[in-house]
Amino acid sequence: MSARNIGHPRVEEGAPRDSGVEEAAQRPSRVRRTPDNLRALAEAGNAALGSLTDHEASPAEVVAWVAANFATDAAAVACSMADAALPHLVAQYLPGVDVLFLDTGYHFAATHATRDEVARQLDVRIVDVLPEQTVAEQDAAFGAELFARDPGLCCARRKVEPLQRALGGYEVWFTGVRRDEAPTRTLTPLVTYDERNGLVKVNPVAAWTFDDLLDYAGAFGVPVNLLMSQGYPSIGCEPCTKPVAAGEDPRSGRWAGLSKTECGLHL
């Protein structure tokens, strides 16, 4: 259980925040398979796992397929730290796997606390993925509270670009995307080739409901963000996330009052 950072400033855990460790030294050094090879593997895996059929593989079977086809240092788990169900599941088959946390500079204190618990409890390596600019630097360049004036640009700078940069050293990444979260996610496959980021994308819990997620977390005692019990079924950056009433769309608290429904990571 350890942690490291990718982004700006680039530092190792425990080091002064201005020490500046080179990003390249932080990434896996193994030789990646070609895009054509990874694309073919993704297609074969999706078919073998029965994605979107009546015989669809379970989340554990999906992760086991990844473990049989990819080395641990070629894999990464994206985690928003709403809960640690996905990192826990993946770590059963790929112990020591990298867990990417997009540290936007705008997270709730409870989200950082969950991140710390995940690092402490699970057999994973936390990777803090940081934007090129701090919040103060972004404010100076674009004006204060960019999230309120142009949330799409803010997400692009603080989430999408940093993740794309961080994924450059991997062959496969896991997401916690679920089909019940939004209409844009209802046809999410178990495995696909991520053309934008150039690697295999795996969504092992796509068929899970919100209750399934909570049941798994409870059964295995994995960390869950305190905000989940306070009306926040979907947790993003603090300025852009509001609690929702029981029975409402779980993602209605994200960018509340705006037409925006996705940060751009999965589009």
Results as ranks from 00 to 15, higher is better:
165 R>N: 04
203 N>D: 07
163 L>K: 10
117 E>N: 04
229 S>C: 00
202 V>I: 07
187 L>Y: 10
105 G>F: 08
122 L>I: 05
23 E>L: 12
235 I>K: 00
110 A>T: 04
135 V>R: 11
187 L>S: 12
71 A>I: 00
97 V>C: 09
240 C>E: 08
209 T>D: 07
185 R>A: 01
235 I>W: 00
150 D>I: 01
231 G>L: 02
204 P>K: 15
84 A>I: 00
46 N>Q: 06
139 D>A: 03
110 A>K: 06
156 A>V: 05
128 D>G: 07
132 E>D: 14
146 L>S: 09
253 G>M: 13
64 A>N: 14
61 E>R: 02
231 G>W: 03
230 Q>D: 14
6 I>Y: 14
140 A>E: 14
78 A>L: 15
27 R>L: 15
204 P>L: 14
101 F>V: 06
13 E>M: 14
123 D>T: 02
67 A>D: 07
22 E>M: 15
48 A>G: 13
162 P>C: 11
253 G>F: 09
21 V>C: 15
180 D>G: 07
180 D>R: 03
4 R>M: 08
101 F>G: 04
131 P>R: 14
129 V>T: 09
103 D>E: 14
87 P>E: 09
244 V>Q: 04
43 E>C: 03
84 A>Y: 00
8 H>E: 13
170 Y>F: 14
266 H>Y: 02
33 R>P: 08
107 H>A: 09
68 A>G: 14
62 V>S: 06
180 D>P: 03
244 V>A: 04
200 V>G: 01
245 A>E: 13
116 D>C: 06
71 A>M: 01
175 T>W: 00
209 T>R: 11
152 G>K: 15
186 T>V: 15
218 G>V: 00
49 L>G: 04
187 L>M: 11
123 D>Y: 02
193 Y>F: 12
210 F>Q: 06
178 R>F: 01
162 P>H: 13
182 A>S: 13
136 A>G: 04
64 A>R: 15
192 T>D: 05
178 R>V: 01
258 L>Y: 11
29 S>D: 06
56 E>L: 12
98 D>L: 05
27 R>C: 09
4 R>I: 09
186 T>L: 15
53 T>C: 01
225 N>G: 06
66 V>W: 13
162 P>Q: 14
154 C>E: 08
204 P>A: 12
227 L>H: 05
129 V>G: 07
255 W>V: 10
180 D>N: 06
42 A>C: 13
69 N>E: 11
158 R>V: 15
115 R>G: 03
256 A>G: 05
151 P>E: 13
209 T>N: 04
177 V>Q: 07
144 A>H: 12
4 R>N: 03
128 D>C: 07
182 A>C: 02
193 Y>Q: 03
241 T>P: 02
231 G>T: 02
109 A>W: 08
81 M>L: 10
104 T>G: 03
80 S>F: 01
189 P>M: 02
183 P>M: 13
97 V>N: 07
16 P>I: 02
147 F>I: 04
49 L>S: 05
27 R>I: 07
121 Q>E: 01
8 H>S: 14
177 V>W: 00
5 N>Q: 05
127 V>S: 00
228 M>C: 06
259 S>G: 15
75 A>M: 11
38 L>Q: 12
100 L>T: 12
